[in-house]
């Protein structure tokens, strides 16, 4: 085995996929498990989620989102298709670049949502920053809907990523 360009590209792809598993795994945990379970939990037990589990999950969630994007952009540059993919393949009419490009843009939108909408609003909703009683449910709703948008986008995003590798 040689530590050549192929090996380093593989290493970055592995780190990209590892980070992505943690990110989307936690995203699906929030949407498929935690949020639907909250109404079934007695009020006196809810702080276990809102004060302990959710803040810990959100920590790994936002940092794995960032590392997925950083490793992904490095990988695209190492593979030589960063600008073609970000142009959605419109500059060279290559389906592989179009597919990976759609995935990259959806990933970038999802990471923006995590850092600039979900996380700031979750801090308000979970009481990690002081807000009025009026503002708290609004922040929770904003975080919840944006998290659902990311869950929706994860479906075509993963199709784009996997199809770019295997179909095109």
């Amino acid at each position: 085995m040689e530590f050549d360009h192929t090996w380093w590209t593989f290493l970055i792809r592995w780190l990209h996929v590892l980070s992505g598993f943690m990110w989307v795994g936690l995203l699906w945990y929030f949407n498929f498990v935690q949020t639907p379970s909250m109404p079934k939990i007695p009020d006196e037990q809810k702080p276990a989620i809102s004060k302990v589990i959710a803040p810990a999950a959100l920590f790994w969630f936002r940092w794995s989102a960032l590392s997925t994007i950083v490793f992904g952009l490095i990988l695209a540059q190492m593979n030589g298709y960063l600008t073609e993919a970000l142009s959605l393949g419109l500059t060279d009419n290559v389906a592989k670049h179009s597919a990976i490009g759609f995935g990259m843009w959806m990933g970038l939108i999802m990471m923006f949502n995590v850092w600039f909408i979900i996380w700031p609003n979750q801090k308000k909703a979970l009481g990690m920053v002081e807000v009025s009683d009026e503002e708290r449910p609004k922040a929770a709703r904003r975080a919840g809907v944006t998290s659902r948008i990311n869950t929706m986008l994860s479906i075509p995003m993963l199709y784009a990523m996997v199809s770019a590798q295997n179909l095109y």
Partner: peptide
Amino acid sequence: MNPLDSLSGTIISGLVITVIMVVLINAIGA
């Protein structure tokens, strides 16, 4: 009604976007 209010609506919306995206990819790569 917002389709994102339910998990099934969220998944169906994701699948619809996937189909639209595949059509666009094939059109661009043709």
